[in-house]
Structure formats: C-alpha cells, structure tokens
Write a protein that binds this DNA or RNA. Structure first.
Lengths: 228, 228
DNA sequence: TAGAAAGCAAGAGCACTGCTCACATTTGTC
DNA sequence: GACAAATGTGAGCAGTGCTCTTGCTTTCTA
C-alpha cells in the first residue's frame, strides 16, 4: 500500500542522496551544500528541510550509503572467490577495498578521512554497515583458524592486549586466538592506511609507476604477518 | 636591521598562525575562518588580507607549521635515543609520531586526513618539511643496513616494484636494498594508518582499554617485517 | 462525503562566510 | 617636511545553513 505521495517522497530522498554523492566528488563533507542540492532538485532552498533535518542528517545518509556500497562490493568479491583459500580471499577483500576507494575517493574520505568536527555518527544507523568489511575479514580469519590454516604469530602477547582481545572474542563469539585477532585488527588499520596514502596522494609525487604492484606486495607482507 | 614595522608584521603573522592553529581544534581545515582570526586579532575583517592572501595561503602556513613541529618532535625523540639500535630508534620515532598525533589530533588531520579539495599544497614550501619524518625513518633504515643489522625480507620483489624502488634509491642516493626500502615505505603508510585509526576513532567504540599497548605490539610486528 | 490533519512548497529574513574595492591613516625614508 | 609604502576601515557582493510564516494539496478520518 503505497500512496503517490510516499512514492514521490522516496524518489526525492533518493535524488537527494544521489546529488549529495555527486557533490562529494568536488567538495569536502563539511562543505556539502543543502542549498545546492535544493537548487539542482528544482526546489526552493528551504523546502529541502522537509526531507533532511539538517546537514548532519545528510551526512549520515551519505555515510550509510557509502558503507553499504563498500560492504556489498567486498562481500561480492569474496563470494566470487569462494573456492579459494581464506588467505587468498583475504587478499581479494583487501584489493576490493582499494579498488572501491580509488573509484570513489571522496566517499572513501567520507568514511575513513578526517571526521567532521561536531558531527557524531548516530551509532544505531552507522555501526552495522560500518562493520561489514571488518566482519568479512574476521570471518575469514575465523575460517582459517577452524580449518587449521592459521599459524599463530610468535612472540608473547602483552597482558593488556590479551585482555582487550579476549573481551572482543567474547563479544563476537570468536574462537580465533587472541594473538591472531590482534594481528588481524592491525591488518585492517594498515590496509586503510595504505589505501589512504594512495587516495590522498601522501606518497611523494610520482613515487610509483605501478602503485598496484607495490600495494599487492605490501598486502602480502601484512597478510603473512597475520598468519594466514 | 629590523624596523618596528617589520617586527610588528612578524608578530601579527605569528598571531595569525597561532589563532589558526587554535581554530583547527574545533573546526575542519575547510572551515577555517579568516574573519574569525581578524576578529580575535582586533582588526577589521578585510585587513587580514594584508597578511594572508586567501584561505589557501593560511592553510599552507598551518601545514608547514604542523609538519615542522612534527618533524622536530620526531627528530628530537630519535636524537635522545642516539645510543640505541636503529630498530629501537625506529620504534621511538613511530611512537613519537603517535604521541604527537594524539596531542594534536586536528593538526595531524590537517597533514594526513582528507585533503582539502581545490587546494594543492605548493610543493616548494611543503615538500621539505613534509619529508622530515620519512627522512628520519629512511636514515635509520640506511644506518641499519650499513651496519649489517638489516636482514633483507625474503621472497622475490616483483619487477615493477623493483624498478620503482631503484628509481627512489637513485634519487636519494640510498644503498639499502630495494626489498627493504619497499617494506620501509609500507611501514610508513601502516604507521599513519594505525595512528589515524586511533585519532579518528575508527576502531569500534571502546575497543581497547589500553590502545598504547596494542599500538606497540602492532608496531613491533611492522618493524620486524621491515627487517630491522 | 465533508472536514480536519498532515505534508509540501514558497519566500522573506538572520547571521555567518570569503573576498574586493575605494578610501583614510599611519609609518619609514629621502 | 614631502612622498610613498604599508596598514587599517567600511561598504558591498555572492554565497552558506537554518527558521518562520503563509498558502496550497494530498491523505486520513468521522
């Protein structure tokens, strides 16, 4: 049961998110212009507030939108490689993150770049989509462990780290050893760091003729460190 | 030979940078308000343009300021540990980066977060201060190699990566092997990633009771991967 | 089916921003 | 002391987020 009004509203909301996404290509998240969206929507500037409470609300919509697309992309890539080893699929997942980020630099920046000051993402709407990619990596880690393919990193685990890891293991019902979990989390942050460097041009100018090759090498090293 | 006027100008410039730095604590780089600085300076809004050409110019001043402080901090920390091994000093350098970033989150974000769209840092003013920290790490790598403490990573180096690394080695006159150099660059990006995660709160909420302990562990793993 | 309620759009207005320009004042130098 | 450069002033333009009042249209309900 969908009244014309509801359909029109849904359409307008979609348009708003789409136009916001387009704005992000040329503008930083803090500079998102509600007036600009209204203008392109062919609507007077104040009317936009019928759909979006304020700029923070728009930000939330775009964040969820981006997280969902990234999550789906990575999940699809991993699913398409379902017959390969956990290690190989982890590589695929990380490469999918990089590829998406290079395709959507501003949306990657929205998710992993400088947070907008004064804006706190509402946990009830962003946490779930935001954990999809880490969840994929964790699941692979867990699978590798269960099938005996995971070799636990050597070296002792400092007590405070062990405590934190055990807390996480309990919370998510993981069986993977704490040391491996810690490396896994490290992989996640290092991955985002490496992608950020490329997307934000943090390596010097023209450092790499073939950045993809460097990324893959770096990634292998990181994944090996996890024990995959 | 310094006229009072020149002295006053210098003073005003310093005040502008200081006030800009203070603004950065509550506001993203794109939101820096020249008018706000003028107001706090007790000067009419248009007068600020006698000192700073436009907002981009202010950005450049703040970027150089931040890079210089970070660079000096890391160099000092390493110098204070001059009697320790290159590996130990590399650890110290990375920890100094983290400590500075946690102390100055918004300035860290200015350097390593989302770039301001439409703003291109003038290379002639930012490259030198921006490479101070990587230069420290590279020097340590070089030193470790010369003293035979560096064990080259195993595994073959893909040809495109090797070419890129050799280009860099030539450019900077490095003797460190290409494979080690590649790991070193990887360390740099992973380091920034790990620090970003903490500064930008990218780990879940309350993931770590002791983030420092986790960071140190992660760092050891990264530095070991380099071969230090 | 009539009327109330809810939804949507318009336009004016406030306080803020970056930046420019014509003008006035101060300051250092010949 | 005269002149020029450096500095400060105030008005103004175009843009922003956001609020409020006013009017119209669609939907729900008695």
């Amino acid at each position: 049961m969908e009244t014309p009004r509801q359909r029109a509203r849904k359409q307008t909301m979609d348009d708003i998110v789409r136009l916001g996404r387009e704005q992000l290509a040329t503008v930083t998240p803090t500079e998102l212009s509600l007036r600009g969206i209204a203008r392109e929507l062919g609507i007077v500037s104040s009317a936009i507030y019928r759909y979006v409470k304020d700029r923070d609300e728009l930000l939330t919509l775009l964040i969820v939108d981006a997280y969902d697309e990234l999550g789906a992309t990575v999940e699809d890539a991993v699913a398409a490689a379902s017959r390969r080893s956990p290690r190989a699929r982890a590589l695929v997942a990380c490469q999918a993150v990089r590829a998406w980020a290079l395709r959507e630099p501003s949306r990657f920046a929205l998710l992993f770049g400088t947070p907008v000051p004064g804006y706190a993402a509402p946990a009830d709407r962003t946490v779930e989509p935001g954990t999809r990619v880490p969840a994929v990596l964790l699941a692979l880690l867990e699978e590798a462990h269960r099938s005996g393919e995971l070799e636990p990193p050597s070296g002792p685990l400092p007590r405070p780290v062990r405590r934190d890891m055990e807390e996480i293991r309990r919370e998510y019902g993981l069986t993977v050893p704490s040391a491996s979990l810690a490396r896994g989390i490290g992989l996640w942050s290092a991955l985002v760091g490496a992608v950020s460097f490329e997307v934000f041009d943090q390596y010097g100018p023209d450092t790499f003729a073939d950045p993809g090759a460097f990324f893959d090498l770096h990634l292998e090293s990181l994944i090996t460190a996890v024990g995959f």
